[in-house]
């Protein structure tokens, strides 16, 4: 039972940590910076329109 409790505790700890970091990451995200590189594959595409939160790199 102790093993079970420990497993549950650690799993919950990881889950909470994940959620915390995920939410923090989402809040901090803004346009520009390194994320602009994700638009490289679309350079020159006529039919591409950047979703909100992204700027086209040109």
């Amino acid at each position: 039972m102790e093993v079970l409790a420990l497993t549950l505790f650690l799993s919950l700890l990881f889950a909470v940590l994940f959620l915390f970091l995920f939410v923090r990451e989402r809040k901090q995200r803004g346009p520009g910076g390194v994320e602009r590189d994700s638009l490289i594959p679309f350079d020159g595409d006529d039919d591409f329109s950047a979703p909100s939160g992204h700027q086209k790199d040109q």
């Binding site: 990451e25 390194v34 994320e35 994700s38 594959p41 679309f42 039919d47 950047a50 979703p51 992204h54």
Partner: peptide, 15 residues
């Protein structure tokens, strides 16, 4: 990204 016409979800995550 090319097939769905959207950039990758998170470039920082890809690093």
């Amino acid at each position: 990204p090319k097939s769905v016409n959207r950039p990758v979800y998170s470039y920082r995550l890809s690093i």
